[in-house]
C-alpha cells in the first residue's frame, strides 16, 4: 500500500509541477502587487492546465497525508524527494531548460542532503 501511495505522490507531483512551470512560462512574468494578484487569479482560471496542475497537487497532498499515517516520515520524505531527480530530467527534455553540469551536481547534492536529513 505504501508503494502505491508513493507512486501516486511522485507522479502527481511531477505532473503538477511540469504543467505549472509550462503554463507560467507561457503566461509571462507576473508581478507581486494587488493588480498582479488579480492578473494571476485570472491566469489560473483561464489556463486549463493550471487548474489541472492544482488538482494534481491536491491529490499528491492528500496521498502524502495518508502515507505519513501508515509509514514513518523517514520513509516518506526521502522517497518523495525522488521527484527532484525526475523533475529536473523532465525540465531539461520537456521544458527545454538548460541543466548544465553545475546545476545537475547541485541538485544531486541537495538530494543527498534531503535523504541524510530524513534518516
Amino acid at each position: 500500500m505504501k508503494w502505491v501511495l508513493l507512486a501516486i505522490i511522485v507522479f502527481a507531483t511531477v505532473f503538477s509541477d511540469l504543467l505549472q512551470s509550462y503554463e507560467m512560462k507561457l503566461s509571462g512574468e507576473q508581478t507581486v502587487d494587488r493588480r498582479g494578484l488579480a492578473k494571476l487569479l485570472r491566469t489560473i482560471v483561464s489556463r486549463r492546465y493550471l487548474v489541472l496542475s492544482i488538482v494534481c497537487m491536491a491529490i499528491s497532498f492528500f496521498a502524502f497525508m495518508a502515507l505519513v499515517q501508515i509509514a514513518p516520515l523517514s520513509f516518506a520524505v526521502p522517497a518523495s524527494a525522488a521527484t527532484f531527480v525526475l523533475e529536473t530530467i523532465l525540465a531539461k527534455f520537456v521544458l527545454h531548460e538548460q541543466v548544465g553540469a553545475r546545476r545537475a551536481a547541485g541538485t544531486l547534492l541537495v538530494l543527498g542532503g534531503v535523504i541524510l536529513l530524513a534518516r
Partner: peptide
Amino acid sequence: MTLLSWADL
C-alpha cells in the same frame, strides 16, 4: 506560481 513565471523549474 509567480516564481515559476520568473525562473526555471
